[in-house]
């Protein structure tokens, strides 16, 4: 366990060196949020107070919170780094180290993501107050409940990206699959809460990982309730267990298939 804590510590210190580069990503984030806010302001401008249970303010806060997870978990560690390690053959040097490679990647990803996530969270809260004012009916309990839910959401995003990257054992480039995944989450989790979709689509989202990584965490902050908290946690735990099992199987099969030429 100590070696994994050491990985987290060193990656965290390393990530702090690159905080300034995140400032430039802030511009892209703020511009996108401004455009989406303009769109929703226009939609609500005809006097529509509430759309499918969301006021303008709640809609913007939903967008910001869901985007925070999406942008905050955009670390390269779980995507390009794993893909490049496999493609370049460097994985051969990683599997004989005295740690589990997947455990190593997860620790590194979580440490790297912590800095990014906190950065985007602060920015989002600022933008939220500017664009939409305070959250209506905000319950302070949601902050406490939000901590494990957001941590698990980030962890699940990382596990999904690691799983996609592991396909590099078989396909030449897993990047296109990462793009497909990002777009699915953006369309069905970030841009709109599940109430905005037809019933069938909403039900599919409810039982998909999107519930635990996008809709659930954002909704919990907006409309806290004990029941919602429990249902999100259960969904997240099941998703994590299933993902870990699949990753373990895929990784074992991938390593067996590995054929690296020495040089």
């Amino acid at each position: 366990m100590r070696k994994y804590l050491f990985i987290i510590k060193t990656t965290f210190i390393d990530s702090l060196q690159y905080v300034s580069s995140l400032l430039f990503r802030f511009c892209g984030f703020a511009i996108m949020m401004y455009v989406l806010t303009s769109l929703w302001r226009y939609i609500y401008s005809d006097g529509t107070g509430v759309i499918n249970g969301y006021t303008f303010s709640k809609m913007i806060w939903y967008l910001l919170l869901a985007e925070t997870i999406s942008f905050g978990s955009g670390s390269n560690v779980s995507s390009s780094e794993v893909k490049d390690t496999i493609k370049s053959g460097n994985i051969a040097y990683q599997i004989n180290k005295p740690y589990n490679y997947i455990g190593y990647v997860v620790c590194k990803y979580m440490a790297d993501t912590f800095v990014r996530f906190m950065f985007f969270l602060v920015i989002s809260i600022g933008l939220g107050f500017i664009f939409a004012g305070a959250i209506e009916g905000f319950n302070y309990m949601s902050i406490l409940a939000g901590i494990p839910v957001f941590i698990f959401a980030i962890l699940i995003v990382g596990l999904i990206k690691i799983l996609i990257s592991l396909t590099s054992f078989w396909v030449e480039d897993s990047k296109p699959f990462q793009h497909v995944y990002n777009k699915i989450v953006l369309m069905f989790g970030v841009f709109f809460p599940l109430e905005m979709f037809p019933k069938l689509v909403g039900t599919i989202i409810r039982y998909s990982p999107i519930y635990g990584i996008s809709y659930g965490p954002a909704k919990l902050i907006l409309d806290f309730s004990g029941g919602l908290f429990r249902s999100i946690l259960i969904s997240q735990l099941i998703t994590m267990i299933v993902l870990l099992l699949i990753i373990k199987t895929v990784y074992r099969r991938g390593v067996k298939k590995l054929n690296v030429n020495g040089g």
């Binding site: 769109l39 939609i43 005809d46 759309i51 499918n52 296109p176 793009h179 497909v180 777009k183 699915i184 953006l186 369309m187 069905f188 841009f191 709109f192 905005m196 979709f197 037809p198």
Partner: peptide, 22 residues
């Protein structure tokens, strides 16, 4: 090429959803 077409096409979902609201 194909991924970029898919990437752009995915935004049709965004607009279909918006036009279902307004």
């Amino acid at each position: 090429v194909i991924m970029m077409i898919f990437n752009n096409a995915s935004f049709i979902i965004q607009w279909i959803t918006i036009f279902s609201l307004k």
